[in-house]
Simulated scan of single mutants.
Amino acid sequence: MSCFQTIADYGLRSLGIGERILPRGSVTLCEQFTLIGSGLIWNIYFGVVSLAFGFLFASALAVTKAWGPVWLRKPAEWFIFLFRGSPLFIQFFIAYEALVRLPKTGITLGGLLVPTDWTTSAWAGAALVLFLNTSAYAAEILYGALRAVPKGDLEAADAYGMTGWTKYRRVVWPTQLRLAWPAYTNEAIFLFHATTLVFFSGFPAYQQRGDALYYAKFFADKTYNPFIPYPIAAFYFILLTLALIGVFGVINRRLNRHLPGAQKPRLRIRPQIIR
C-alpha cells in the first residue's frame, strides 16, 4: 500500500471516515504519521471549543470576583479554587463516573424527556471538563489583569462621564485584555497539551477513534517501540504550539497597536511542567 493510499484510508479515521480497521501486521512510518495526525483533529476540537466558551465564562467570573455581590462572588471564588486546586486527570475521572450514573433513559424536566446518554461521550463530557478547567485558570488571569488596570485610566473614564457597561467596554476591558494576553497565551498552549488526557482518564474512545496520544500508545504497544510514535505525537504538538503562538501573537500586536514599539510587551512562552 502506498503512502498516498494510507493517507486516503486513515487520514480522517478519527472522525469515522475511511478505513475502520486499524493496521495489522507490520506497521509503516506513514501509517503512524497518518493516524497520529488524524487523532490530532480531536485535540484541536477539544482545545478550540473549551477555549472559545471558557474565555467568555472566565471573563464573567473575573468581573464577578472583582465587583460582584457577596452571594455571587463567593461561589465564583469557590469555583476557581476548586478547579485550580484539583488535578485535571481527577476532574476527568470524577466527571465521567458522575455522568455515567445518570439515568440511561434520560431525565424528565417539566414534562420533557432530556436524553443523557450523549454526556458520557468524549466530545461532550470531556469538552465540558476542559471548559470548566480553563475557565477557572483564565478567570484568575483576567482577575489579576482587572485589578492591575491603571487607576489613571479609570479616573479618565470617570472624567468623560463613562459609567457601568460603557466604562467597562471602552476602557477596562481593552486594558484588561492587553495586560492578560501574554499569560492567557500560555494557558491556551497548556490547554491544548492537556487534551491528551481525555482518552486516558475514563472517557472511552468509541470504535477506537481517539486523539493523537491514543494512536501513539496504540503503535507503541503494537511495535514495542515507543521511540517512534511518541516523538511523532510530540512533533505534531510542537507544530500546533507554533501555530498558537503565531495566532495569539497577531492578536497581541493588535491589542498593543497604539503603544510605541519599545513599550509593546512581547509574548514569553513559558512551558508549564506541573500544573
Results as ranks from 00 to 15, higher is better:
12 L>Q: 05
60 A>F: 00
170 R>W: 10
259 L>I: 09
16 G>W: 09
182 P>E: 12
199 F>V: 10
153 D>C: 09
104 K>F: 04
246 G>M: 11
193 H>K: 14
218 F>P: 05
237 F>S: 13
262 A>I: 06
134 T>C: 12
21 I>Q: 15
171 V>N: 07
94 I>M: 15
172 V>Q: 00
100 V>M: 04
37 G>R: 03
215 Y>P: 08
41 I>N: 08
270 R>P: 03
227 F>I: 12
264 K>Y: 02
127 A>P: 11
160 Y>H: 12
192 F>N: 05
113 L>K: 10
80 I>N: 06
23 P>W: 06
49 V>M: 10
167 K>V: 09
161 G>A: 04
124 A>I: 15
122 A>R: 05
230 Y>I: 14
191 L>A: 08
140 E>R: 05
142 L>Y: 06
164 G>E: 03
187 E>F: 03
257 R>A: 13
39 G>M: 00
35 L>S: 05
198 V>H: 00
28 T>R: 08
95 A>W: 01
263 Q>F: 04
19 E>W: 00
155 E>P: 04
135 S>E: 01
56 L>H: 04
180 A>I: 05
269 I>M: 06
220 A>R: 08
50 S>L: 01
108 T>M: 13
78 W>C: 14
153 D>A: 07
2 S>W: 02
169 R>S: 12
231 P>D: 15
189 I>G: 08
79 F>H: 06
221 D>Y: 06
115 P>L: 11
10 Y>E: 05
67 W>D: 11
188 A>H: 11
152 G>N: 00
125 G>C: 09
61 L>Y: 01
139 A>W: 11
254 R>P: 08
222 K>N: 10
267 L>C: 03
138 A>E: 14
53 F>M: 03
102 L>N: 04
167 K>W: 10
225 N>P: 03
266 R>C: 04
55 F>G: 13
176 Q>R: 14
49 V>D: 08
149 V>R: 01
108 T>P: 08
118 W>P: 13
94 I>A: 14
180 A>P: 05
207 Q>I: 09
159 A>S: 10
212 A>S: 13
22 L>M: 10
99 L>A: 08
69 P>S: 07
